[in-house]
Amino acid sequence: MPIIVNLDVMMARRKMSLTELSEKVGITMANLSILKTGKAKAVRLETLEAICRVLNCQPGDILEFVEE
């Protein structure tokens, strides 16, 4: 898929672990892992909003379009 999820990059910049993000955002570790590994087929806007709020970033910092 040409959409790249840069969640791990943002987490590393903010020095935040997956467990901590999971607790703060309020979604399960399993779902976060799906998102982090790029297996996710869709992201709810409310999930994106929560992640951006916790990581203090823009949606464009997490999602990136790369031509295949």
């Binding site: 779902n31 998102l35 869709a42 709810r44 999930t47």
Partner: peptide
């Protein structure tokens, strides 16, 4: 179902 399962 797969789409539903892989929606976060």
């Amino acid at each position: 179902q797969e789409e539903h399962d892989l929606t976060v």
